[in-house]
Design a protein around this nucleic acid. Structure first.
Length: 864
RNA sequence: GGACCUAUGGUCUAGCCGGUCAUGACGUCGCCUUUACACGGCGAAGAUCGUGAGUUCGAAUCUCACUGGGUCCA
């Protein structure tokens, strides 16, 4: 450790942070598997390796790091692992873009390799930013979901759940891009505004409006609103589909908008999401009219083989010639398109793999977890309760965990690999045994791959050491920190999977942080131009200022607006704190005896205050209220320590009297405690100060502050002294005097003896005398102060009447209240402690200024 | 369209299991080169706590409606 000889006058966060960044060892944060300390395992969210650790990640990680560092100081064996959730479409697209290819241009394995390489270089970039932020990740427990040692666990979990009957295959509608030939997730659908034609035609005597006449062959029902009087007579009847001739039922559903089109709508499998919903709800038939290449199927009869666009024209032409097409009106609509190629998506029904969702078990586990903030749990509960169908886990992609399954060519049996042979890629590897059902030896590997959430939803099992043999020793983790945007995905799926594979809840607690919004209050987006990248903040003000913003920007769980103001405030606090440390160090290094306890009033007062602050901060940390913690620390450091205390003891520190030793003790104790309390928030800054204070010790190896000091007398007397000083300052300010201008003779009349060791006198540069007596001043009652907390509950409606009656009393009765007062003609008992007089004072004899601090503390100033 | 959250001085924010003059920061203004700090100190101005109604002696705080914002989902 390097200890600067001269403490620099200015604090340079960039220089200091980069120095410590290069000094600290990653090993210092490793989880110790043989430790006897209580474990604290964090199920860190594995980000998607885009190459940019964005500001929302950074904010989330600040929270995690505050916890990790705090818990370490509290004596826990902390694991703060770092994972990477690699698989998914964005990387596939990026690789295609960078290499100018499409994924089908190169062999499957070649394409995967390109994705892996890009991902690794992205991860490396993000690691650098994280280390620069001062995050104390345990890099010995890093995991990368695309690596064999991880995805073999994903595959193992698949096999286990398949064998348990929780995973099955079924046909289900999915979003499909017929150009790319793959199912895509809702997240991958982009919407475009287009103008199309709404076609009104005669549907067996009923007028129907549709934008998709080409789907007529897939029509399975006609729906009307149940209250639509035009169609009451048609309920339960069947109609003949024009051109095709099959019969469909007329059903009623609240979701039909009677004002749209003719108020009757044809349901096809599938024109849009609403069709899927109706199809499911009314258990309708399935008629597939479009295949995976976007062409019409055999049920389209003479239109078979046409593209859907060709089919539309042909059908409209036939309708016209048969005279059933009534009219066409232009219609603006949102069209779901493939976000890559802009082809309108089709909803097709295909064989998919599903995970069974046991809502009740998930709800039960969610209730066993402690949620911060509490209300976030209801999001998961609402979601779980309204789940309509199971979780579709298959994807038609390349860069993902392969579904470890083959099919027997002869009998179609599903063939599973032995668990010991994992990981497998069924498109490359072959089963080691013949088909157990028919003895067949030819197989087809499953080409579908797993949804990325299948990887990341076992992050907690991975970090706690799951290998399928038993519930891991470290399971469950202590905490899951994450954003509220992924409660319905990551949190939900993790609870589901942990429950399926271990029967337990994944974590004891979940801490949900808000989203980072741009400084204009909107979600950050490129199109708005309000994106702030962490690197910009780090290079301007450093990591500690950024971390303070994370802690103080908003209450836990609230969305947080990015604000350069708050970053500046953080940087300024560091400057202030730095100067406090410099001042203290200058005094400490001057030498001289240093006491081992606080002896003088102001020192005892400070120790009592410090002890209270420590209790407050610890309380806040334990409930993850970081903004409360940092607020209390900052207020104490600025107001109590710097502005009140240090100003008060300067006189003692500059002299060699006995009071100096006690003040040095107080300075050292307070700086030490502040460094420790700041260590989780501003690790670089706290380290720098602590090193200087202790001659080379690391604050991050220290235990959390446990400072117990109660001195109620010192608190009251000290508060009084501080108040006298600030009143005198205000007085000087109002009188146009410099604050250190000499001020003759000041007498403080108090109800108790005060010995401040001369601090007050030196702080206000006056001859100060404390007198435990009442001043000989004439006193008059000028007002009455009521105690609403006493009056309200006792008198309820009579409260205001009572107060008016008290105010109306003559002065002597306010000082010596009568038993009762008259309110609205009734006698009401005067309540003890319900009010107190407010006095004003007038001068007696000598010409002095009078400052009234409170009822029984009077200060007189005798100017010379 | 649904669920949840949110609205406080110019800007951001604390308080929100009801109680006396609503917290702090940044900004603004005035005074002060006080031997840690002018990236400072002292002081001031600035908010009828989104709108409307209700409960209550008393509401920023509780209830309802409305409006704007956010997130997730349909």
């Amino acid at each position: 450790m390097s200890q600067p000889k001269e403490i620099p006058k200015n604090y340079d966060p960039i220089e200091v942070e980069e120095r410590w960044m290069n000094t600290w060892k990653k090993e210092d944060y490793y989880f110790d598997r043989h430790s006897k300390k209580p474990q604290f395992v964090i199920d860190t969210p594995p980000p998607y390796p885009t190459g940019n650790f964005h500001i929302g990640n950074a904010f989330n990680w600040c929270y995690i790091d505050f916890i990790a560092r705090y818990k370490r100081m509290c004596g826990y064996n902390v694991m703060f692992p770092q994972g990477w959730d690699c698989h998914g479409l964005p990387t596939e697209v990026k690789v295609e873009e960078l290499n100018g290819i499409t994924k089908n241009d190169v062999p499957r394995e070649e394409f995967r390799k390109m994705c892996r390489e890009l991902t690794l270089s992205n991860i490396e970039k993000m690691r650098k930013t994280m280390w620069r932020c001062g995050f104390s990740n345990d890099w010995s427990n890093e995991y990368i979901t695309m690596m064999p040692e991880y995805y073999k666990k994903t595959q193992l979990s698949f096999l286990r759940m398949y064998k348990m009957g929780d995973i099955y295959q079924s046909e289900h509608p999915v979003n499909f891009c017929t150009r790319c030939g793959t199912a895509i997730a809702f997240a991958e659908v982009s919407y475009e505004d287009r103008t199309t034609k709404l076609n009104y035609f005669d549907f067996d005597g009923l007028e129907i409006a549709t934008t998709r006449p080409e789907l007529l062959a897939a029509c399975v029902a006609v729906a009307v609103h149940p209250d639509d009087e035009r169609y009451t007579s048609l309920k339960g009847k069947t109609l003949k589909v024009p051109l095709f001739g099959h019969s469909v039922k007329i059903i009623t559903d609240e979701a039909v908008d009677p004002s749209f089109g003719s108020g009757a709508v044809m349901i096809c499998t599938f024109g849009d999401k609403q069709d899927v919903h109706w199809w499911k709800q009314h258990k309708l038939d399935l008629r597939k009219a479009i295949d995976m290449t976007g062409r019409m199927t055999s049920i389209a009869g003479k239109y078979q083989g046409m593209t859907s666009t060709e089919c539309r024209e042909a059908i409209l032409a036939d309708m016209k010639s048969q005279g059933i097409l009534k009219r066409q009106v232009p219609l603006d609509q949102h069209v779901g398109t493939c976000w890559r190629c802009k082809t309108p998506i089709e909803i097709l029904s295909e064989r998919q793999w599903f995970v069974k969702v046991h809502n009740d078990e998930i709800l039960e586990k969610a209730r066993q977890i402690s949620w911060t903030p509490e209300h976030m749990r209801s999001r998961l509960e609402n979601w779980a309760q309204q789940m309509e169908w199971d979780w579709c886990i298959s994807r038609q992609r390349i860069f993902a965990t392969p579904i470890p399954v083959w099919f027997c060519k002869k009998c179609g049996e599903v063939i599973l690999p032995d668990e010991a042979d994992l990981p497998v890629d069924p498109t490359v590897d072959k089963p080691k045994h013949a088909c157990p059902k028919c003895g067949g030896n030819e197989f087809v590997g499953e080409t579908d791959v797993l949804d990325t959430w299948m990887d990341s939803s076992i992050s907690v099992l991975n970090v706690t050491g799951w290998d399928g043999s038993k519930v891991p020793d470290l399971f469950p983790a202590q905490i899951r920190p994450q954003g509220h945007d992924i409660i319905r995905t990551w949190a939900f799926y993790t609870i589901l999977r942990a429950n399926a594979l271990t029967g337990g809840k994944p974590w004891e607690q979940i801490l949900v942080n808000g989203m980072v919004l741009g400084d204009d209050g909107f979600k950050m987006s490129k199109s708005r131009g309000n994106v702030i990248v962490p690197e910009e903040v780090l290079s301007k003000h450093g990591a500690d200022a950024f971390r303070q913003w994370s802690a103080s920007g908003a209450a836990t769980g609230q969305d947080i607006v990015f604000s350069w103001n708050d970053i500046t405030a953080g940087a300024r606090f560091q400057t202030k704190m730095w100067n406090i440390c410099r001042f203290a160090m200058m005094q400490l290094e001057k030498g001289g005896p240093e006491s081992d306890k606080a002896e003088v009033l102001a020192d005892r007062w400070l120790m009592h205050r410090l002890s209270q602050v420590e209790k407050d901060v610890t309380g806040f940390m334990n409930v993850y209220n970081f903004d409360g913690a940092i607020r209390v620390i900052r207020e104490f450091a600025r107001d109590i320590f710097a502005d009140n205390y240090i100003e008060l003891v300067k006189g003692r520190l500059y002299s060699d009297g006995a009071g100096r030793a006690s003040a040095l003790y107080a300075l050292r104790t307070t700086i030490d405690a502040l460094c420790r309390m700041l260590a989780p928030f501003t690790p670089f800054f706290a380290e720098e100060c602590y090193t200087i204070l202790t001659g080379g010790k690391s604050v991050h190896k220290q235990s959390w502050v446990d400072f117990d000091y109660v001195d109620k007398l010192a608190l009251d007397e000290g508060d009084l002294v501080v108040k006298v000083v600030s009143e005198i300052r205000r007085y000087k300010h109002d009188a146009g005097m410099a604050l250190n201008a000499p001020l003759g003779h000041v007498v403080v009349y108090t109800p108790f003896e005060i010995n401040d060791g001369g601090d007050c006198a030196s702080a206000i540069n006056a001859n100060v005398e404390f007198k435990c007596e009442k001043p000989k001043l004439t006193r008059a009652v000028s007002d009455v102060k009521f105690n609403f907390g006493v009056i309200g509950p006792k008198l309820r409606k009579q409260a205001s009447g009572y107060m008016n009656a008290i105010k109306a009393l003559p002065e002597d009765q306010i000082l010596n209240p009568p038993k009762t007062v008259k309110v609205d003609g009734a006698e009401i008992e005067v309540i003890a402690d319900s009010f107190e007089p407010v006095y004003s004072f007038s001068v007696e004899g000598e010409k002095v200024e009078v400052l009234t601090l409170s009822e029984d503390v009077i200060v007189t100033v005798h100017k010379n």
